[in-house]
Structures are given as structure tokens and as C-alpha cells.
């Protein structure tokens, strides 16, 4: 009975099961070796709206560069270039 009910449901458009996009580490790909803590616009890409650092599972960066990003963001926060807590940062 349950199967039969499922087949009844016809979707207008096929539900977009999020196709597995191969995540890559943008620093390895673009050969960036040093993440500068002095320019906040670049660092804003790695921070969500509340100013929190994005986790690796979302950004896909490798451990080595995630640590550099975290260090750079924390230094930028210390120098008040980036907020510790923000709302609607972007």
C-alpha cells in the first residue's frame, strides 16, 4: 500500500537531489600560500552572516588551509577589522 501511494505522487519538476558537487580546496587549486589577515573583504568569504567561521564540510578546504584561515580571521577580529559577532554581515 505504501509503495502504491508513493508512485501516485507525481512531481511537476524532478526534485533536485543535490548532485554530489565534488568539493575542492580553493587554496590548493589557486595556489594561494598565505592568507592575509589584513584584508577583511577576502576573509568575509569564509565567515557566515553572524561572523562565525564556516566549517570545512561546507567550504571543502583542506585542514592546513582551514587552520590558516581560522588564524587569519581571529587576528582580523583582534584588530577590529572583522566583528566577533555580527548580524547580516554580508
Amino acid at each position: 500500500m505504501a509503495q502504491q501511494k508513493n508512485s501516485d505522487i507525481k512531481y511537476l519538476t524532478p526534485i533536485a537531489v543535490d548532485t554530489k558537487k565534488k568539493k575542492y580546496c580553493r587554496f590548493k587549486k589557486s595556489r594561494i600560500k598565505y592568507i592575509d589577515y589584513k584584508d577583511p573583504n577576502f576573509l568575509l568569504k569564509f565567515v557566515n552572516e553572524q561572523g562565525k567561521i564556516l566549517p570545512r564540510r561546507l567550504t571543502g578546504t583542506s585542514t592546513k588551509y582551514q587552520k590558516k584561515v581560522a588564524k587569519a580571521v581571529k587576528r582580523a577580529r583582534h584588530l577590529a577589522l572583522m566583528p566577533y559577532v555580527a548580524d547580516l554581515l554580508k
Binding site: 600560500k33 589577515y37 587576528r75 584588530l79
Partner: peptide
């Protein structure tokens, strides 16, 4: 108000020269 001193490694030095 606030200060921050950072030791630069070789990647950082190369980056600052380029900058």
C-alpha cells in the same frame, strides 16, 4: 588602542613583497 605583532614566514614575506 590595540597592537598585534606577527612573525612573517617565507610565504608571508613573498606575499608582502608582491603586495
Amino acid at each position: 588602542l590595540r597592537f598585534l605583532t606577527v612573525k612573517l614566514d617565507k610565504h608571508a614575506i613573498a606575499y608582502s613583497e608582491k603586495r
